[in-house]
């Protein structure tokens, strides 16, 4: 029994879960896969009076292929995304990102909502959702709230989610045919949390977004590198990244800075050289 003692509740539906969370506030924590939360509790890095098991709520398993967006429920596992069991709004980008998260046995249990809710600075989904311009959908006692991914990640393990809210899923704009993307991750070993992860998306309409995470406080968009990518200028992406990563990761030593510049450049290079997706 490694974690400190806590109470366990398994609400029957989302309404009950929101009501319970509204009552308990930040003394309670929702858990779905628990693949980061449970080891953190075992290591006594964190602890809660109550764990709210939301892994079985049907409302969080909803997947909708809409005209302009794909909605992916928070309790969808990394493995389901890796295996293409949910529609991919980005022509395989999400499957690629999923396949590089931890290990298969972890991906079978871990969920996209849990990863985003915990907001480990080195986790993959926050970076991916930023690059895709996604929105986070939250449910609380007062109803639903939709936040852009851009304003959602505030710091290490810190998000704009109110302690009484539950992430229900993500609205992710569909890329149109002709879009391109690239991603590059540096980790000490395959499956480990990244030192640096960059994801670059270049839409068919000419818009570009480059997101970076790893040793930063939290995943963030790099506007300069994004503009350079939109202009198709790889040398300018590298130049912009040099200035932006120094700001994004102020504590970084020379290795970490070079590492971030390299992942940004390689992600942008893959996007620029990729056959446009259909």
């Amino acid at each position: 029994m490694k974690p400190a003692a806590f109470e366990y509740a398994r609400p029957a539906d989302l309404a009950e879960a929101c009501a319970l969370l509204g009552e308990l506030g930040d003394a309670a924590m929702p858990v779905a896969g628990g693949q980061s939360l449970v080891p953190m509790m075992s290591l006594r890095l964190t602890g809660f009076e109550t764990l709210l098991d939301i892994s079985r709520l049907d409302a969080l398993k909803v997947v909708r292929d809409e005209e302009t967006h794909v909605f992916i429920g928070a309790a969808v596992t990394h493995a389901m995304i890796e295996d293409g069991k949910v529609p991919d709004p980005a022509f395989g980008l999400m499957a690629r990102v999923a396949s590089k998260i931890a290990y298969r046995a972890v991906r079978n249990m871990g969920t996209i909502g849990g990863s985003v809710g915990l907001a480990d600075p080195a986790s993959d989904w926050p970076c991916c959702l930023l690059a895709l311009g996604a929105e986070v959908v939250l449910a609380g006692a007062e109803g639903e709230r939709v936040l852009g991914a851009g304003g959602f990640f505030l710091g290490p393990y810190e998000t704009a989610r109110d302690p009484a809210e539950i992430i229900t899923g993500f609205r992710i704009p569909k890329l149109s045919a002709g879009a391109r993307w690239g991603t590059f991750k540096v980790a000490r070993k395959s499956g480990a949390f990244s030192d640096s992860l960059a994801i670059a998306v270049l839409t068919a309409e000419g818009e570009a977004r480059v997101a970076l995470t790893g040793t930063l406080d939290h995943a963030q968009l790099l506007p300069g590198a994004s503009a350079a990518l939109a202009a198709g200028d790889l040398a300018a992406v590298r130049e912009a990244a040099r200035a932006e990563v120094a700001q994004a990761d102020p504590d970084a030593d020379a290795y970490r800075l070079r590492c971030h510049v390299a992942t940004v450049t390689r992600a942008a290079e893959e996007a620029l050289t990729m056959e446009p997706r259909r």
């Binding site: 366990y8 628990g34 449970v38 080891p39 493995a79 046995a105 972890v106 079978n108 249990m109």
Partner: peptide, 16 residues
């Protein structure tokens, strides 16, 4: 395996 797929039993709560 849990419900037929591999999982790490050291980071799963029995109650879940």
């Amino acid at each position: 395996t849990i419900d037929g797929v591999p999982a790490r039993s050291c980071i799963v709560l029995a109650v879940m």
